[in-house]
C-alpha cells in the first residue's frame, strides 16, 4: 500500500498575523512554521498503516526550500520519503494540480490531505485533487479502516457522523478524530537521526497557473472594551443581550 500525505507549512497557532507591503503580503518575520495540525493527524494515521500493514508513506509539500524543516520533521515522525514540489503556492487549485502531477507519476492507493490548512483555510485541495483525478473524496474524516482493498470510513457531518464504504484509490481529508491528540508522534532522537538518511526529493514541474489571487489582506476591526455585569445582577446581562445586542 502506498500512501501520500500532503503537508502544508503553516504559521504556528500562537502566531500574531501581520501583513506588509501595503497589506498585500503576509509578514513571516518572527513567525514559526509548523505542520498543519490536520495534516499531522493524517500523518499519524498513515504511520499506523505503515506499522500494521507495511504501507509506504510519502509526504509531499508544494513550496520553496523554507518548507524543508517540516518535511524533515515528517521523516523523523516516521515517513519513508519526502517530496518537495518546488513552486510557490498561490491558491488551492494550483496546489491541487501540482499534487495531481505527482499522483499521476507515482502509484498511490491512498492520498491524505488535511480537512483544511489553518492559514488559507481553503478546505479545497483534497476535493479538487480527487475530482480532477476522478477518484472519490471523503472530507472531515474521523475514521479509516482498511481491509484489503476495502475501506470503511467515517465523515463528521453537522450534528453527527456518516459511515461510508469505499475502495482504493481515494483521497481523504483528515482531522482530529482520525487519531487523537495523545496519539500524535513526537520525534525521538533515533527518528531524527534516521530522517537525515531518508530521501528528500525536489521536483520542479512545469508551471501551473492559479485561478485566484489575493489583492489585499485586512485585520478584523478592533473591538471596544467588554461590558462587565455584576454577578449579583444577572438580569442586567439578560436585558443587554435582549435589548442592546438583540441576540436573544
Amino acid at each position: 500500500m502506498n500512501v501520500l500525505v500532503c503537508i502544508s507549512n503553516v504559521p504556528d497557532t500562537t502566531s500574531k498575523i501581520n501583513f506588509k507591503d501595503e497589506n498585500t503580503v503576509f509578514d513571516i518575520q518572527g513567525v514559526q512554521f509548523i505542520i498543519n495540525p490536520n495534516d499531522e493527524f493524517g500523518l499519524t494515521r498513515a504511520i499506523w498503516l505503515q506499522q500494521k500493514e507495511g504501507a509506504k508513506v510519502t509526504v509531499a509539500t508544494v513550496g520553496d526550500v523554507s518548507c524543508e524543516p517540516i518535511l524533515r520533521k515528517c521523516l523523523a515522525i516516521g515517513a519513508d520519503r519526502a517530496v518537495r514540489v518546488d513552486a510557490k503556492p498561490q491558491d488551492g487549485f494550483q496546489v491541487a494540480m501540482y499534487l495531481a502531477t505527482l499522483y499521476k507519476n507515482s502509484d498511490f492507493d491512498l492520498v491524505i490531505t488535511g480537512r483544511e490548512s489553518i492559514d488559507y483555510n481553503g478546505g479545497m485541495v483534497g476535493g479538487i485533487l480527487a475530482t480532477h483525478l476522478e477518484i472519490p473524496y471523503v472530507p472531515n474524516c474521523i475514521q479509516l479502516e482498511v481491509s484489503g482493498k476495502n475501506l470503511t470510513l467515517q465523515r463528521e457531518i453537522d450534528g453527527g457522523k456518516e459511515s461510508l464504504t469505499a475502495s482504493f484509490p481515494i483521497v481523504i481529508g483528515a482531522q482530529k478524530g482520525l487519531v487523537e491528540e495523545k496519539d500524535l508522534i513526537i520525534p525521538n532522537m533515533r527518528g531524527i537521526m534516521q530522517a537525515r538518511q531518508k530521501p528528500m526529493e525536489v521536483i520542479s514541474p512545469e508551471a501551473i497557473s492559479c485561478e485566484t489571487s489575493v489583492q489585499r489582506f485586512e485585520k478584523p476591526a478592533e473591538k471596544g472594551p467588554v461590558k462587565l455585569v455584576d454577578p449579583e445582577k444577572i438580569d442586567e446581562l439578560i436585558e443587554l443581550l435582549e435589548n442592546e445586542a438583540k441576540v436573544i
Binding site: T212, F217, E218
Partner: peptide, 20 residues
Amino acid sequence: LTVKRSCFTNKAFNETQSSK
C-alpha cells in the same frame, strides 16, 4: 469577480480576485 473572505482562521480577511 472580487470578494472578501476570511483566512488565518478568522485572524484576518483577504480580498480575493478570480481569473475565471
